[in-house]
Simulated assay, not measured.
Amino acid sequence: MQGNPILSHGAARPVRVVLADEQELMREGLAALLSQQDRFEVVGTTGDGRDCLRLCVDRKPDLLVFNENMPGLNGIEAARRVASRCPQTRMLCLSESADRPCVRAAFDAGAHGYVLKRCTFANLVDGIDSVLSSRYHVSPELAHVLVEAFCQGHDPASALTPREKEVAQLYAEGHSTRQIAERLHISMKTVGTHREHILAKLELEGIADLTRYALRTGLIALDA
């Protein structure tokens, strides 16, 4: 398969990149490293999932590098929406987690690559080159995770609607029903209905179980 023409030595323009990570230092450091190479142009950075979607829709990047843990709208759901609205954008998840549910969630959302944050910058660039060349990429140490994913059953979280995922994340982050209703501009009754559907689909008993599930699968960060 031929590589992406924007990677060729005679490229007319650099690769346009959006960086989305809840850690500001990580965003700034990665932006500085990428900007040292003429073939990359960082066109936006953010630590917020909704802003990530807005940046991608507005700026049409060639590449989105994202982390799954962002407040309000987590990176997985943001990536899912980017995949739907910006199908030309290639996506690479840069994560601290090597857990199977997190890796699977990223690819289910439409990511084309998954690289661990403990990798070197050279490893990250290899991953970027792979996904920009219309291939899929994972850190070598994650190969066993992909095998396990094929051997396991369907992830029940994939049955949640986009709104249910938002509500689930907000509950897991400690927001009350009233706070969620105000934040999403819906009624408390509607929030309650979403809550019941979420618990039923995930086969959970209550919000405490939902919080544990969210932490285990990367829906929220440990310090959210």
Score class of each variant (00 low, 15 high):
residue 154 H to M: 11
residue 119 C to G: 09
residue 179 Q to P: 01
residue 173 E to P: 02
residue 117 K to R: 15
residue 218 G to R: 07
residue 71 P to V: 06
residue 100 R to T: 15
residue 108 D to R: 14
residue 6 I to A: 08
residue 31 A to D: 06
residue 172 A to W: 02
residue 54 R to L: 06
residue 121 F to D: 07
residue 158 S to R: 14
residue 158 S to I: 11
residue 28 E to K: 07
residue 154 H to F: 14
residue 77 E to S: 14
residue 91 M to Y: 09
residue 37 Q to E: 09
residue 212 R to C: 12
residue 56 C to P: 07
residue 148 E to L: 14
residue 98 A to M: 15
residue 153 G to M: 10
residue 103 V to E: 00
residue 52 C to P: 05
residue 171 Y to F: 08
residue 93 C to P: 07
residue 109 A to Q: 01
residue 118 R to F: 13
residue 112 H to S: 00
residue 184 L to H: 07
residue 176 S to E: 00
residue 209 D to P: 05
residue 7 L to F: 03
residue 8 S to I: 08
residue 184 L to Q: 08
residue 6 I to W: 10
residue 198 I to D: 00
residue 42 V to L: 09
residue 32 A to S: 12
residue 23 Q to C: 05
residue 12 A to T: 05
residue 98 A to P: 13
residue 72 G to R: 10
residue 185 H to V: 12
residue 108 D to G: 07
residue 221 A to P: 01
residue 199 L to V: 10
residue 5 P to W: 05
residue 47 G to T: 11
residue 51 D to N: 07
residue 49 G to V: 04
residue 40 F to N: 01
residue 143 A to W: 14
residue 213 Y to M: 12
residue 49 G to P: 05
residue 206 G to C: 03
residue 9 H to K: 10
residue 166 E to K: 06
residue 90 R to P: 01
residue 3 G to R: 12
residue 73 L to T: 08
residue 129 D to C: 02
residue 11 A to K: 09
residue 124 L to V: 04
residue 188 M to R: 11
residue 189 K to F: 15
residue 216 R to L: 10
residue 175 H to E: 02
residue 89 T to F: 11
residue 11 A to F: 09
residue 50 R to C: 05
residue 149 A to E: 12
residue 124 L to T: 00
residue 33 L to E: 13
residue 121 F to L: 13
residue 124 L to W: 04
residue 175 H to N: 05
residue 48 D to H: 04
residue 76 I to T: 08
residue 170 L to W: 03
residue 139 S to A: 14
residue 5 P to V: 04
residue 221 A to K: 08
residue 207 I to Q: 03
residue 146 L to G: 02
residue 189 K to H: 13
residue 142 L to Y: 11
residue 156 P to Q: 15
residue 44 G to Q: 10
residue 11 A to N: 11
residue 84 S to A: 15
residue 6 I to S: 06
residue 33 L to W: 13
residue 205 E to W: 01
residue 211 T to C: 14
residue 99 D to W: 07
residue 61 P to Y: 05
residue 92 L to S: 04
residue 46 T to R: 07
residue 37 Q to F: 03
residue 13 R to I: 00
residue 5 P to Y: 09
residue 221 A to Y: 04
residue 126 D to Y: 10
residue 136 Y to D: 03
residue 201 K to C: 02
residue 73 L to C: 11
residue 29 G to K: 01
residue 188 M to S: 11
residue 163 R to P: 03
residue 39 R to M: 11
residue 6 I to V: 15
residue 114 Y to N: 06
residue 172 A to N: 01
residue 111 A to R: 00
residue 182 E to Q: 13
residue 134 S to P: 00
residue 9 H to W: 08
residue 38 D to K: 13
residue 185 H to E: 12
residue 37 Q to I: 01
residue 44 G to S: 09
residue 70 M to C: 07
residue 135 R to H: 15
residue 64 L to I: 03
residue 133 S to W: 09
residue 131 V to P: 04
residue 37 Q to C: 02
residue 117 K to F: 12
residue 65 V to P: 03
residue 85 R to P: 01
residue 35 S to Q: 13
residue 135 R to F: 13
residue 18 V to C: 03
residue 37 Q to L: 05
residue 46 T to D: 12
residue 42 V to N: 05
residue 82 V to I: 15
residue 102 C to V: 13
residue 15 V to Q: 02
residue 30 L to W: 01
residue 105 A to T: 00
residue 104 R to H: 13
residue 85 R to G: 02
residue 55 L to E: 06
residue 91 M to E: 05
residue 214 A to Y: 04
residue 93 C to T: 06
residue 134 S to M: 14
residue 42 V to I: 12
residue 96 E to H: 13
residue 12 A to C: 01
residue 108 D to S: 15
residue 184 L to M: 11
residue 167 V to G: 04
residue 56 C to H: 07
